[in-house]
Structure formats: structure tokens, C-alpha cells
Write a protein that binds this DNA or RNA. Structure first.
Length: 814
RNA sequence: GCCGAGGUGGUGGAAUUGGUAGACACGCCAGCUUGAGGGGCUGGUGAGGGCAACCUUGUAAGGGUUCGAGUCCCUUCCUCGGCACCA
């Protein structure tokens, strides 16, 4: 056949190809996969289980926006790749359907949250999630608002309760006096209600807390064992906020209380303590006050503004009592001020104005003495917080700061007046919500037996069908109105008792959902031990960093508790976690209130899911985020069109062409490396290059079938429908997604055989040289110096120095 | 203020251990093609200069180390995310 004939044949072939119709192709394969059950994972017999999880959505009324596609498509690409590599991938999806946002929305439109949710979940699943081509196994889905699920959320609470990790005590809540309701922290925008902008007040209610602080050290230490995005681990470390220091006991004079312990990270500055400060919100502040001044101090305290804003160091009051310095015996005044937090450390501090910025500010405002005890700064001008040598510190003067720390703490220990101490910023987890749309906390209050756990066989405590679920304005949950639900006999003694009427935090719902997915078909246990052993911990978890702290920390805490109770083997829920970047629009998060929500449906409608997935993944590095622009989407259909044409025309059975084999192996290696590291944008670039090369081969009749197969398999995780269609059209029987069918590569073949060497003169590129890979430095130097261009630039001079690096560069220095 | 991640063409973004800056794509320009429609294909495209081969310059700003710096070090500025009186 002549070249002309070949061209003619190719052209007629091209005419025979019908056009790529994404809508038809995608509908066809969705149906076939569904009928064949391709993505039902056999959770019992899986030989190489791989649990691929993405954070489940909260099903809002407005539907998914384009930002949601990042985790769902990105996680799915990873899962599909693992499946092609031979793993038995389990990829479930569910709905975080409880919570204050759904409730508020339901309130707004005057419908029942259960109705709103049913509609939203249905829309999410049928119209959105099922269309994006992800291989979710819908036979293992969860809905946190379903009694079959929240029954076990309540069970989880009871395990914590029985382990002594749930505690009822008074806690502050945000209260909006205009909306007459309790507000979640995220509904408060710098001290004001997000809806009516009224100043939010603080109310104290008896509430349930989970004692996550007991696990602070474990949660911190175990971070080192996790393969998580570094940024996420850093945020958790900061949130846990471990600090090391010492406690110091000061005797008190002139008040009811005889002594007080303070916490400091700088015991070396003890001699510089010129006053003591108790947090203005300290629960026992009155005990620090001389009795005759109680009225005055309480009045002062009640006048303090409730909002927290910029620290105001002018606010503070001398209580009139005194503390005795444990080493010098000096009497120093005791103050109260809001710049000290009553809830952190011991709620009181020794103030060392010379060496602490805040104490310095406060001392200056109130005319308190500043005594330098660490040399190295000018404490008259500003606090010096650096290191130095102790001065004005009695027998410790002259010691370096770290030695001073040790010796002073040692001395305090001898005197039984102090000891080393570790503090954490982490607070206990407040789970009580005075609302309707959540799982009732399964506790019954008995006048005789106190709070009693609802017996496990009585779970779930169903959320009553309530017509009027509006907040009551009294600060109690609307559930309190349902008399026949509230009044129950005590499970222990049978006497009349009352149910807890608060519901739990939605983060409790999601703190254990990964344990439920594999076991959704069990209704007698929350998670089957065998299934759990097989599937947990989650192998890959993908989600947004907005959950870096709360969700991910609570889930770790709950897993660890269940582990300590012997219920799960592993102490950590997620072996590997990757935070994807956040897509914003016009620099702001997408949200309905900002009016910048873009719906993926329209894109899928117009371009198809394959194009949309590829486009979203090509925007930039997966772990970074950025502004969403759709201008560049046009490049993706062009690429798919090229794949459509090239793979169907590539029929050459040749498998031996060395140049093409090298190209193919290099391509596979690149795909493997990129996908493994979630570098989807560069993977797509590699496919575009490979597809173009194949297309050019195909145009001359030399497109190889094996290249087409390789391209389709590599593209399959990204564009599952079109690749399946082309796989069929190119005469294959099975699925392109068949487990284990990812092509292998040979490292030697993947290495380039020729390399292009940069030839520089005085560091400037003047020529290039193509040589066999691995050509030794002496040869490179010789070849480079022989180049006419180099000779010309040398102009007869001898080079002063020649640097040659194998496979890289030759630099001739004159 | 503290912690973390960044700053590369008109745009999104590529660049192994320091070794040819700008891969791939959008946009734009030119040509071809078609049933002129926001279609398809091919080529060009950092900036300045030159008919050209080429030259100069260029990765937020300034300085430094090096044969060689987007990459390493120091200083400054800016953007994004988190924490914000945590003693």
C-alpha cells in the first residue's frame, strides 16, 4: 500500500466513525454497570480490601455545587486506579443528614426537616451523585438521620457514657435574645447573631461533654504514625496545643481561699512575678476577694462586655487580697482581669511583666512594677521574651534560662510548692444541642438514680414526629414539649422519670460512620467484628481541610475509645488522609447566601460527566485550591475527541517498535506516579501528550492497538464512560475497568535512551547536544568543546574550567 | 501577632538531587477545512531587538552562596488557610 492509499483509507475510516455523543454514552454505561452490579463490592470475600472513603455530603436544598466534585471525582479516580491495580476497592457514599443547617432551612421554608431531607437526599443521589461516574457502592449507604443509623450513634454515646467519658456539667451556650434560640458557634459572627445581628448573650446550661481531653496526649502522639496531609496534622497539633511548664503554689492572704496554683511556661522568671491575675471568668473568683469587697467586685464583673474582641489591657481590678511569693516571701497584689482565661491552665497566672508581652501591657496600664529577671532586653521599653541569663533572682542569678528553669522547679518540688506540668488547649467536646433535628441523647433522669443510660435493647430513642419543631425560646429543646415522649419510667427502678431532651452534635454522627459502611446489612450490631477487621482502618480518606480539626479529631477520639474498650482492633480510623484544595469563586467560598454557587448539573448536561471530571481535575494541583473559572473547559472535549478518533483508528498489531514501546512505558510510569500522588493535573497533561502522539500515528495508519489499549486503561479512572465505550468499540469483551488490568511498565524501558544535554558558556545556554543516556562526563566535555558554536564563542581561548554532569549539562567557563 | 501554604507569560498552571524556565491547556494570531455556528485541523505565541542565524532580558522586591538558582541562605513586601489574650 502506498502512503497515498494509506491516507485515503484513514480518511474514509474517519468518515465512518460516528460522532462522540457523551449523553448517550454515559447513559448507556450507567445502565449497564448498574444492571451488572459492577461496583458492588463483595465485602466478605475481598482478597485485597481497599477502603476508599470520601467525606460524605450534608444534603442541602441547593444541591451539590461544583466544589463538591473535587472530592467525589478525585477520590473516585484514586479508587478506580487501585481497582485497576488489583485491589478490591470498597467505595461507599452516604448522607450527613442531621444538623442545624437542615433544621434552619426547614424552618425558613416552613416544611418539616424530615421531608426536606428526604427530597434533598433523593436529589443528591439520583440526580447528582449517580451522574458523576463514581463507582459508589449504593448497597452500603448510610443516612445519619435514619433511625437504623442513629440507633448506633446513640449506642456510641452510651459506650462513652459507660466508660466514664461522658459527663454532665454546666456550660456556656450562645443565646440570641431576638431569635430566642441557642446558636451554634458557627452561627455567631464576631459576637452577633448571623441572622438578625443581635448581640449574642451567654447562658449557662447543664450539658453533656465528651472527655476528649483525656486523650489529648495520645491523639497528639499518634499523629506521627499517620500518613496525612502535613497541613492537617499541623492544624491538629495546634488545636491540641500542648505546652510544657510548671505549676506554682502561692499562699493567699486577705480572702477566703488559702492558696492558689498558677501555671507558667516560664518558671525561670518566677522572681519577676510582681502580681497575680485571676481570670475574670474564673468560676471561683469570689473566693479570691476580701469579703468586704465582694459586692464591688461582682458589680465590676457584671459590667464586663460579653464579647471577645481585641484584648483590652486597661480592664482589670485589684481585688485587695495578696499572694505570698513562694521563694522570696514578698507580698504581691492579686488582680482580676479578662485577659486571663478562667478556663485554661489553672485559671490564674503569675504575672511577669518584664518577660511577657501581655503582662507588660497590663502592668503599664495599671502602674504595676516591672522587674527584670532575664538579661538581654530593655524591659523599660518592651517585654523581653527571649532567652538570657537570670538576674535579680537570688541564688539563681547568673544561671542561663534553661538551667534556671530546672533549678527553680526543683526547688519548688522540694518545698512541695510546684512541679512540672503539661497543659493542652484542647477542650472537652460539648455535644448537647437544644434543638430538634438530631439524635436524642439516650439518657433518662430519675429522681433517685440520676442520669441513667437507656438500655441498649431500647435503642433507638426515636426522634418524635413533631409538628412544631421550632426552638421554644426557653433554651430547651422542642422535644421537651412532647410530654408522652419525655415521661418514661426509670430503666433501673421503674419510678417516673424524664428523658434528656437535647439532641447530640452532628459531629457525633460522623465520628463513626466509616465503621458502619461495611456493616450496613447488620441490624443487630453497629459494626460486625469480622467486617471491621477486614476493612478498617480506612486506606484512603479524602476531604476538605475545613474538617481538619473537629470531624477528624472527633473521629480519631471515638475510634481510640472503641479500641480501648476492645471493640475495634485499630486505634486510628484513617491511615491516609489527603486534604483537597478548596474551590472558591471570586475569592469567596461558594454558598447560596453569597449567590456564587455553580451547579455541576449544567456542566454535566452540556459536556458530560467525563469532560467535567477531567476538567475539574485539570484545574491545578489537587491539594491546592483556587478560583473557579470555566473558560478552559473547551480543551477537554477536544482531547476526548482526539482519543475517540485515535483509539478507534489505531489497529496496528505491532508490539515491538522500540521507540514506541519506550514511549508507552514512560507514559505508564508517569501515570502511575502521578495518580499515586494525586497529581491529576500533570497526569492529564501526560495523557494529552500521549493521545496526540497516537493520533498522529493513527493518521498515517501506524497507530498501534497496544498504545490505544494503554491510553484507554490509563484514562479509564478519569473518564470512566467514554473509555468503556471505546473499549467495546475496539473489540474487547470485558470492561476497561476490569480489576487488575492496569498495564505494568519496565523501569529500563521507561528510562529515556537519549538525553538532551544543555551546553552552556559562562552559565548561559548556547547549544544543546543529544547523546545516549549515561554518556560519561569526559565524553560530554569533548563533544561540547568540539561544537562549532562553542569554538566560536571561545574564540581560541582556553576554557578556565569545564563542568560536565552526566545526563544534564556541560558548562564551559572562560 | 503566631502557625502553615504560596507569589512563575494575557490566564490556569509545568519544571527529578540546584542543571535547557514557561510542559499541558485556555485565550490570542495566521492558514486550511466545513452545512460561516461560541465546529474541526495545522502552525505560531514571555518581553525587547534583528530580514535572519541569533542577541539581550525574564520566576514578588533586594542582597548572598555557586561553574550554574524558580529551586539553597538572609532581609523586605504581598496573597490564601488556620489559630487568635492559651500565660
Amino acid at each position: 500500500m502506498t502512503a497515498m492509499d494509506a491516507t485515503a483509507t484513514v480518511e474514509s475510516d474517519q468518515r465512518r466513525l460516528d460522532a462522540y455523543d457523551p449523553a448517550a454514552v454515559e447513559a448507556k454505561w450507567r445502565r449497564i454497570w448498574d444492571q451488572r452490579g459492577d461496583y458492588h463490592t463483595d465485602v466478605d470475600s475481598a482478597a485485597r480490601p481497599f477502603y476508599n472513603l470520601m467525606m460524605f455530603p450534608y444534603p442541602s436544598a441547593e444541591g451539590l455545587h461544583v466544589g463538591h466534585i473535587i472530592p467525589f471525582a478525585g477520590g473516585d479516580i484514586y479508587g478506580r486506579w487501585r481497582r485497576l491495580k488489583g485491589d478490591d476497592v470498597f467505595e461507599p457514599m452516604g448522607f450527613d443528614a442531621f444538623g442545624i443547617h437542615s433544621e434552619n432551612y426547614a424552618l425558613k421554608i416552613g416544611e418539616h426537616p424530615a421531608v426536606v431531607m428526604r427530597r434533598a437526599v433523593n436529589n443528591f443521589r439520583e440526580n447528582q451523585l449517580k451522574r458523576i461516574g463514581s463507582m459508589f457502592d449504593w448497597s452500603h449507604s448510610v443516612n445519619t438521620a435514619d433511625p437504623a443509623y442513629y440507633r448506633w450513634t446513640q449506642w456510641v454515646f452510651l459506650q462513652l457514657f459507660k466508660a466514664g467519658l461522658a459527663e454532665r456539667r454546666e456550660g456556656a451556650v450562645n443565646w440570641c435574645p431576638s431569635c430566642l434560640t441557642v446558636l451554634a458557634d458557627e452561627q455567631v459572627e464576631n459576637g452577633h447573631c448571623e441572622r438578625c445581628h443581635t448581640v449574642v448573650e451567654t447562658r449557662f446550661l447543664m450539658q453533656w461533654w465528651l472527655k476528649i481531653t483525656r486523650y489529648a496526649q495520645q491523639l497528639l502522639d499518634a499523629l506521627d504514625t499517620l500518613d496525612w496531609s502535613e497541613s492537617t496534622k499541623t492544624m491538629q497539633r495546634n488545636w491540641i496545643g500542648r505546652s510544657e511548664g510548671a505549676t506554682v503554689l502561692f499562699d493567699l492572704e486577705g480572702c477566703r481561699r488559702k492558696d492558689v496554683t498558677v501555671y507558667t511556661t516560664r518558671p525561670d522568671t518566677l522572681y519577676g512575678a510582681t502580681f497575680l491575675v485571676v481570670g475574670a471568668d474564673h468560676p471561683d473568683l469570689e473566693d479570691f476577694v476580701p469579703p468586704e469587697r465582694l459586692g464591688e467586685i461582682n458589680a465590676w464583673r457584671n459590667r464586663l462586655p460579653r464579647e471577645r474582641g481585641e484584648p483590652d489591657f486597661s480592664v482589670g481590678i485589684a481585688l485587695g487580697s495578696h499572694a505570698v511569693h513562694p521563694l522570696t516571701g514578698d507580698r504581691i497584689p492579686v488582680w482580676a482581669a479578662p485577659y486571663v482565661l478562667g478556663g485554661y491552665g489553672t485559671g490564674a497566672i503569675m504575672a511577669v511583666p518584664a518577660h511577657d508581652e501581655r503582662d507588660w501591657q497590663f502592668a503599664r496600664q495599671h502602674g504595676l512594677p516591672v522587674v527584670e529577671v532575664i538579661s538581654g532586653g530593655d524591659v523599660a521599653a518592651s517585654a523581653y521574651t527571649g532567652d538570657g541569663v537570670l538576674v535579680n533572682s537570688g541564688e539563681y542569678s547568673g544561671a542561663p534560662a534553661d538551667e534556671g528553669k530546672r533549678r527553680i522547679v526543683g526547688r519548688l518540688q522540694e518545698l512541695r510548692r510546684g512541679e512540672p506540668s503539661v497543659q493542652y488547649k484542647l477542650r472537652d467536646w460539648l455535644i448537647s444541642r437544644q434543638r430538634y433535628w438530631g439524635p436524642p441523647i439516650p439518657i433518662i433522669y430519675c429522681p433517685d438514680d440520676g442520669p441513667v443510660a437507656v438500655p441498649e435493647q431500647d435503642l433507638p430513642v426515636r426522634l418524635p414526629e413533631l409538628e412544631d419543631f421550632r426552638p421554644t425560646g426557653t433554651g430547651v429543646s422542642p422535644l421537651a414539649q412532647v410530654e408522652d415522649w419525655v415521661n418514661v419510667p426509670c430503666p433501673t427502678c421503674g419510678k417516673p422519670a424524664r428523658r434528656e431532651t437535647d439532641v447530640s452534635d452532628t459531629f457525633l454522627d460522623s465520628s463513626w460512620y466509616h465503621l458502619r459502611y461495611p456493616s450496613t446489612d447488620f441490624d443487630d450490631v453497629p459494626f460486625d467484628p469480622e467486617r471491621t477487621r477486614k476493612w478498617l482502618p480506612v486506606d484512603m480518606y479524602i476531604g476538605g481541610n475545613e474538617h481538619a480539626v473537629r470531624h477528624l479529631l472527633y473521629a480519631r477520639f471515638v475510634m481510640r475509645v472503641l479500641h480501648d474498650l476492645g471493640m475495634v482492633d485499630e486505634p486510628e480510623p484513617y491511615t491516609r488522609f489527603r486534604a483537597h484544595g478548596m474551590i472558591v469563586m471570586g475569592g469567596a467560598k461558594m454558598s447560596k447566601s453569597r449567590g456564587n454557587v455553580l451547579n455541576p448539573d449544567e456542566y454535566i448536561e452540556r459536556y458530560g460527566a467525563d469532560t467535567f471530571r477531567l476538567f475539574m481535575m485539570s484545574l491545578g494541583p489537587y491539594m491546592e485550591g483556587g478560583d473557579f473559572h470555566d473558560e478552559a473547559i473547551a480543551g477537554i472535549p477536544r482531547f476526548l475527541h482526539r482519543v475517540w478518533r485515535a483509539t478507534q483508528l489505531a489497529t496496528d498489531p505491532d508490539r515491538d517498535n522500540e521507540m514506541k514501546e519506550r514511549r508507552r512505558h514512560r507514559f505508564i510510569k508517569e501515570m502511575d506516579d502521578d495518580i499515586a500522588n494525586l497529581r491529576y493535573n500533570t497526569a492529564i497533561s501526560a495523557m494529552e501528550i500521549f493521545a496526540r502522539a497516537l493520533d498522529q500515528d493513527a493518521a498515517t495508519g501506524s497507530g498501534r492497538r497496544v498504545d490505544a489499549e494503554t491510553l484507554l486503561t490509563c484514562l479509564a479512572p478519569f473518564a470512566p464512560h467514554i473509555t468503556e465505550e471505546l473499549w467495546e468499540r475496539t473489540g474487547h469483551d470485558g470492561s476497561v475497568h476490569a480489576p487488575g488490568s492496569w498495564p505494568g511498565y519496565d523501569d529500563d524501558l521507561a528510562r529515556p535512551q537519549d538525553v538532551s544535554i544543555a551546553v552552556q558558556v559562562n552559565g548561559k545556554l548556547r547549544a544543546t547536544l543529544t547523546v545516549d543516556a549515561g554518556t560519561d562526563a569526559d565524553t560530554l566535555q569533548e563533544l561540547a568543546l568540539a561544537l562549532p558554536r562553542v569554538q566560536q564563542l571561545l574564540g581560541g581561548q582556553q576554557p578556565k574550567r569545564v563542568v560536565a554532569r552526566v545526563d544534564r549539562v556541560v558548562n564551559v567557563v572562560v
